[in-house]
Design a protein around this nucleic acid. Structure first.
Length: 880
RNA sequence: GCGAGAGUGGCGGAAUUGGUAGACGCGCUGGUCUUAGGAACCAGUGUCCUAUGAUGUGGGGGUUCGAGUCCCCCCUCUCGCACCA
């Protein structure tokens, strides 16, 4: 718990105002003050009882599936959640008001390591910890007033969910899409588990930032590489996705076209295969570089080089992965003692091992062309290896001994025998074809993407439904035996190794094939497997005949709008796309892509504050710029993402206690457009609270006046202006929210309308126009601040909820004014304004503009060359 | 290095197609009401100038009657990827 030493006097004031409903406000009805606590509790209860957000299949309406990335049940909702879900809720409620059949579900990404760690730390069980957290977080989410269909809620740690995941896995195994192999994997010592390539950032664990080590393990993999091309192609067919996310995915897949070339080893039958994107430079390959882990290394090293090579490999192993993949690592290598043959010119070239060659990319062997590759150039210079120029730029003559860096541009081939004089782009094709006819090379495509390693040596995850039998090998658990339930009676020691591997009752099983004693797989799935298909399960969470009810899945999917953080740009969003294609190919659904539109919302940030004595301080620990613990002045730090470590956090619970959920929602929607970072600002929150009070009073204080009022057929003057503003606002908000997600400007537009209501003088004479304006404000605000809107709608005399009353429509005729103001420019500079009838013709507008005294001043004595009239906007008089 | 995006008042941010730059909110200033204001309401608030006015969207060019918006060059920042052969 955070300590809250003392609230600033101001806070106490507003808090009293809300909780006690007492304020010394003259001229108003004391009983009718805006009391968010009361209003919100009331409507949340109504929603709980009436379930107005439950979605059903049989609807005449058009479907709309809106989804926010589900949370990990850490125990507490943070402001990032509030923002994410507030954004989603606006869209859900707006679409519902527009008449769509909206699916808006919520659930829990409930497997994962924090539960295990917390269980060890608090001497409890991950299941208990997780389900208790879900309980309290569900309660917190309900306090925000989010319009979920709670009947569809599930947690991924429910056996009813993961049993289907196990089934999908068995189907993938059947088709060879899931396989087991021994390989060097990314091992995090801290987390005591393997990590997928996507989960390694800068050579460190994405979760704990510990250095990742290579480790030889038998692991389960998903064949995502089979889908590399399709995943890549579809990145061009997702116009509803942010470009940068698509770019990151393309980058991650890393498709490159090139050539695989065989270099026969001298005096051996073996060949070294290399992958290159530059077959045009083949004649310039003067040596060969292999990764130290390359399988041929053993057979290549000669006796006299053996000692040195051994030392070298040991030295490279000591360099951690982060260093080894960074550009500024010193390039070092060692000669193996062996040679291979350059297939183009028959030359014998020495074979080296080099620390910068990675076994995980291409073939783990690189033909070194020092003249035209910077790394090879540096390496050749260091070890005095020959450099041969094979590409000459136009109008320049490169000499090998004068090069200071590699030449990587285009040019004509030289020193390349029959290919001399050919431009290098053409030569790529020609040399590839030449090698192909001789059986020494072939055109290939290479991907950076590796298969997805899904085994985790952890307890709190989905058991992998495989049984190991000494006679039959890896045998899938028969479908009828699913689910393989995660046993709850385990001891978590935190000492490493999977707890399941020590659970004998779980492990011991008879082989389903031969009946002999066998052993269960003790690894669990990467939790990203669960989140790769949860969106599909929401369409039919109760379905018991299979993972997906095809009818429901096909009706609701794809997700029309997905909303979440950018941090999942590669991992979750790529896996989910892959899984969708797998589910399609397994015949479980009929879509190609899971998410039609993607919105990546920005982070919630806040200024950091630091006491010279007490370090980082929570906002509550600072009063008047001083530390409440010692009274010393506080230093203001950078504005950063809210985080517990920097203590620059706002607890949503406290915020809601203080201002109500509607204010919390409103501020997080108003302060910045959704995709940008949001800077938390206490005074901005105050402003939003003030606005809601203004709205409240505008309705309550005019209730009597407008009670029986109807909107008149035609109005004039000030009343016509307010009516126009009302309809302009409907138009503006509709357009801003629909597809554009410009919630900040939509809210600003409603604020303008409220301001216009406040300055509307002839309300006594025009109660109907006032009523229309007020109803419009309430309707338009509903998606943003649903509690206060429902309450005011009720006060306005409606029995039906505002959400069910539909989204207001604007009347085009009400938008049209009789007169409009035009700007008059002389040479592009504003000199005057004129008010003309809407129907005024060009001539009269021109004449009136030219007659303006201030316009006359600027055109006097000059020749009018041209008059530009932009209808409804301006007149520009061009003089010389 | 490659890729994506962004630079607008004191601050957060507006400005769908080129057409009054700074909507809306915060802050600030003045006023009204008040025992009081930290409430509420009204008004003002880019910069410069006494003013007609001048000037102003990172910098420099260009296109145009007219450019925050289009084109060219440059600078800065953020994010992602990167010894990828």
């Amino acid at each position: 718990m955070q300590s809250i030493p003392a609230l600033a006097g101001f806070r106490v004031y507003t808090q009293n105002l809300i909780s006690d409903g007492v304020a010394d406000r003259r001229g108003g009805n004391m009983d009718n003050l805006y009391n968010p606590k009361e209003v919100e509790a009331k409507w949340q209860q109504v929603w709980l009882e009436k379930q107005p957000f439950a979605a059903s299949l049989d609807s005449e309406k058009e479907k709309y599936y809106l989804l926010e990335m589900f949370p990990y049940p850490s125990g507490r909702i943070h402001m990032g959640h509030v923002r994410n879900y507030a954004i989603g809720d606006v869209v859900a409620r707006f679409k519902r008001m527009q008449g769509f059949n909206v699916l808006h579900p919520m659930g829990w990404d409930a497997f994962g390591m924090p539960a295990e760690n917390a269980a060890i730390e608090n001497n409890t069980h991950p299941a208990k910890w997780t389900y208790e957290n879900i309980e309290s977080m569900r309660h917190q989410l309900k306090r925000i007033g989010l319009s979920y269909d709670w009947k569809r809620e599930f947690a991924t740690c429910d056996a009813d969910y993961y049993r289907w995941e196990q089934l999908i896995f068995l189907k993938m195994f059947e088709r060879g899409l899931a396989y087991k192999k021994g390989s060097s994997v990314n091992w995090c010592e801290d987390c005591q588990t393997v990590l997928a390539n996507e989960q390694v950032e800068d050579g460190c664990c994405w979760r704990c930032h510990n250095l990742v080590q290579p480790k030889e393990l038998e692991q389960w993999f998903f064949k995502i590489t089979d889908y590399a091309d399709e995943l890549l192609e579809w990145t061009d067919k997702l116009p509803g996705w942010p470009e940068r996310v698509l770019a990151m995915q393309r980058n991650w897949i890393g498709k490159s076209y090139g050539c695989e070339i065989d270099f026969p080893i001298v005096d051996q039958g073996e060949k070294i295969k290399v992958f290159t994107t530059r077959p045009d430079t083949l004649s310039g390959a003067t040596f060969m570089s292999l990764a130290p882990e390359h399988p041929l290394v053993k057979s290549l090293v000669t006796a006299e080089q053996e000692e040195e090579v051994k030392n070298f490999i040991a030295a490279v192993e000591r360099q951690d992965k982060a260093d080894r993949t960074s550009g500024d690592l010193e390039k070092i290598g060692i000669f193996t003692g062996s040679y291979c043959v350059n297939p183009l010119n028959g030359e014998n070239i020495p074979i080296f091992l080099a620390n910068f060659v990675l076994m995980g990319y291409g073939t783990g062997a690189v033909m070194a062309v020092p003249a035209h590759d910077q790394r090879d150039f540096e390496f050749a210079t260091k070890y005095q290896l020959p450099i041969r120029v094979v590409i000459q730029p136009a109008g320049e003559e490169l000499a090998a001994d004068q090069l200071v860096e590699a030449f990587t541009d285009t040019g004509l081939l030289t020193n390349s025998g029959q290919f001399n004089g050919v431009d290098n782009e053409t030569a790529k094709e020609q040399i590839t074809t030449f090698l192909k006819t001789r059986g020494e090379g072939r055109k290939t495509v290479n991907y950076r993407l590796r298969d997805w390693g899904v085994s985790r040596q952890r307890y709190w995850g989905t058991p992998i439904p495989i049984i190991y039998c000494d006679s039959c090998g890896a045998v899938p658990v028969p479908e009828e035996d699913l689910p393989v339930k995660l046993p709850l009676d385990v001891k978590l020691t935190g000492e490493g190794g999977s707890p399941l591997a020590r659970h004998h009752d779980f492990l011991r099983v008879d082989c389903p094939k031969c009946g002999k004693s066998a052993r269960r797989e003790s690894d669990t799935f990467d939790t990203f497997v669960e989140s790769s298909w949860y969106f599909a399960r929401y369409t039919c969470p109760e379905y018991t005949a299979g993972p997906l009810d095809k009818k429901a899945a096909n009706y609701w999917l794809p997700v029309d709008q997905y909303i979440g953080g950018i941090e999942h740009a590669v991992m979750h969003l790529l896996y989910a796309r892959f899984y969708t294609k797998v589910l399609r190919d397994l015949g479980l659904l009929d879509i190609d892509e899971p998410f039609t539109n993607l919105l990546t919302q920005g982070m919630v940030c806040k200024e950091t504050q630091r006491c010279p004595e007490h370090g980082w301080l929570y906002p509550e620990q600072v009063v008047d710029g001083n530390c409440t613990l010692c009274g010393q002045p506080v230093e203001l730090g950078r504005t950063e993402k809210m985080s517990k470590s920097k203590k620059n956090v706002i607890d949503p619970n406290q915020l809601i206690d203080q201002y109500g959920a509607d204010t919390a929602r409103l501020f997080s929607l108003f302060a910045a457009p959704p995709e940008k970072d949001l800077e938390w600002n206490e005074q901005g929150v105050e402003g939003c609270f003030r606005f809601l009070n203004r709205v409240w009073r505008a309705v309550v204080d005019n209730l009597e006046l407008i009670q029986t009022a109807v909107v008149p057929e035609s109005v004039t003057g000030e009343a016509a202006e307010l009516r126009r503003k009302t309809h302009q606002t409907i138009k503006k908000v509709s357009e801003d929210v629909d597809g554009r997600f410009h919630f900040n400007t939509a809210i600003a537009a409603v604020m303008e309308l409220v301001n216009a209501i406040y300055t509307f003088k002839s309300r006594q004479e025009n109660p109907g126009v006032l009523r229309e304006a007020l109803e419009t404000v309430v309707s338009l605000l509903n998606p943003f601040v649903p509690h206060i809107s429902e309450e005011l709608w009720l006060l306005l005399g409606y029995q039906q909820s505002v959400e069910a009353s539909g989204w207001p429509t604007w009347d085009e005729s009400a938008l049209v004014a009789d007169e409009i103001t035009l700007v008059v420019q002389v040479n592009g500079k504003v000199r005057s304004k004129i008010t003309v009838a809407v129907a005024a013709d060009r001539q009269s507008i021109e004449a009136e503009a030219l007659a303006e005294p201030n316009v006359q001043r600027f055109i006097e004595g000059k020749q009018v060359r041209k008059v530009i009239v932009v209808p409804g906007r301006l007149i520009n008089i061009v003089v010389a």
